[in-house]
Simulated scan of single mutants.
Amino acid sequence: MAPSDTYALDTTWWMVLKDLGIVAADVLRRAGLSEDLPRLPSVRLLPDEYHRFWNGMEAESGDALLPLRVCEAIRSEAFSPALFAALCSPNFITAVRRIAQYKRLIAPMRLEVSEGHDGMTLELLWTCASRPPDSLVLMELLFFVSLARMGTREAVRPVAVTTTALPSPIAPYEAFLGTSLKRGGRYQLVFDAADATRPFLTSNARMWETFEPHLRQQLAELDGAVTTSQRVRAALLEGIPSGRVSIEAIAGKLAMSKRTLQRRIESEGASYQQLLAETREALAHHYLRKTALPLAEIAFLLGFDEPNSFFRAFRAWTGGTPEEARHAR
């Protein structure tokens, strides 16, 4: 799948959820997404999944002011590619233009920036067929105001803010913006010329030059490094001690059907039973070498109904017995 079809889910979201007191696993379950996403080094979502993730956040928070809360929770010390790139900029207009260069890689939207004598206009254009959640659009609009304030350490206020649907209640949002929200046919922010060129106190040209090549590579890469087999092994490490080792249980945890999971594993030259056996064997060696647990308890932790089943499986794996492996350590 091409980069234009999927979008990187910024790892900053997990910190924001934590700060807001929202359980990430509950959001992912509600959105129908895999529970292991926070543990993956890179996550890319389809537009519909991106919107479902936000809707899951909103439902779990139960807060009509969620867009405002998210912008308040995003801090300059949080490592976000978009935020880091912007805050290294010499001024607000440069920050916005940098975000516009790769925003389409991390969200199903495009940012158009126009600059004139009177100021700067930002327009958010959604690039997917489905309509984005109104509150998600509002959060994106608020983000650029927060960005200006973080970089300049000044109470920057937009001249005008337009969106297609006004929030309720509206007063807290207008108090945050310092201006009124207008309803229209576009998603737009307008800043005066002085604020557009206002210097960023966070400017760091040397850091940007060092970091930019790596940032571009990260944003352009698809999530091809983590295979389905690796995700299954990680899910089994959590599920085996609790006895949740069926393919149906693991498929559910990874938010895919049993048939899809089997097809993806087989395309990687493996089988579910093979992955289960390999994971059990690795856990068995860990328990035997690193703990003094009785063999019967190890058998239980590996999901076997009784010790003899564990002994037979271990001999099939290694050609020896658990006792021999423990003494050989």
Score class of each variant (00 low, 15 high):
147 L>G: 02
147 L>I: 02
147 L>A: 04
147 L>W: 06
148 A>V: 03
148 A>T: 01
148 A>C: 06
148 A>Y: 02
148 A>S: 10
149 R>M: 10
149 R>I: 08
149 R>C: 10
150 M>Q: 15
150 M>S: 09
150 M>H: 12
150 M>K: 11
150 M>F: 09
151 G>R: 03
151 G>W: 03
152 T>V: 05
153 R>M: 10
153 R>T: 09
153 R>D: 13
153 R>A: 13
153 R>P: 00
154 E>A: 14
154 E>K: 15
154 E>T: 13
154 E>F: 09
155 A>Y: 10
155 A>P: 12
155 A>K: 15
157 R>L: 06
157 R>T: 14
157 R>Y: 03
157 R>Q: 14
158 P>W: 01
158 P>L: 03
158 P>Q: 01
158 P>N: 07
158 P>G: 01
159 V>H: 02
159 V>L: 14
160 A>G: 10
160 A>F: 08
160 A>C: 13
161 V>C: 05
161 V>F: 07
161 V>E: 03
162 T>F: 11
162 T>N: 08
162 T>I: 15
162 T>E: 15
163 T>V: 12
163 T>M: 15
163 T>C: 15
163 T>W: 04
164 T>F: 08
164 T>L: 11
164 T>M: 15
164 T>P: 08
164 T>C: 13
165 A>H: 13
165 A>N: 09
165 A>P: 00
165 A>E: 14
165 A>I: 13
166 L>Q: 07
166 L>P: 03
166 L>D: 01
166 L>H: 07
166 L>V: 02
167 P>H: 10
167 P>M: 11
168 S>E: 14
168 S>C: 09
168 S>N: 13
168 S>H: 12
168 S>M: 09
168 S>L: 09
169 P>I: 00
169 P>F: 00
169 P>E: 04
170 I>V: 14
170 I>E: 07
170 I>K: 15
171 A>K: 13
171 A>F: 06
171 A>W: 05
171 A>P: 00
172 P>S: 06
172 P>I: 02
173 Y>E: 02
173 Y>T: 02
173 Y>P: 00
174 E>N: 11
174 E>R: 09
174 E>H: 10
174 E>D: 12
174 E>I: 11
175 A>H: 12
175 A>N: 12
175 A>T: 14
175 A>D: 14
175 A>M: 11
176 F>H: 05
176 F>G: 04
176 F>E: 05
176 F>Y: 15
176 F>V: 03
177 L>G: 08
177 L>W: 07
177 L>I: 11
178 G>Q: 04
178 G>A: 03
179 T>K: 00
179 T>L: 01
179 T>Q: 03
179 T>A: 04
179 T>S: 00
180 S>K: 14
180 S>H: 11
180 S>V: 12
181 L>W: 04
181 L>Q: 06
181 L>V: 08
181 L>N: 03
181 L>A: 05
182 K>A: 14
182 K>H: 14
182 K>G: 08
182 K>F: 09
182 K>S: 14
183 R>S: 12
183 R>N: 08
183 R>L: 06
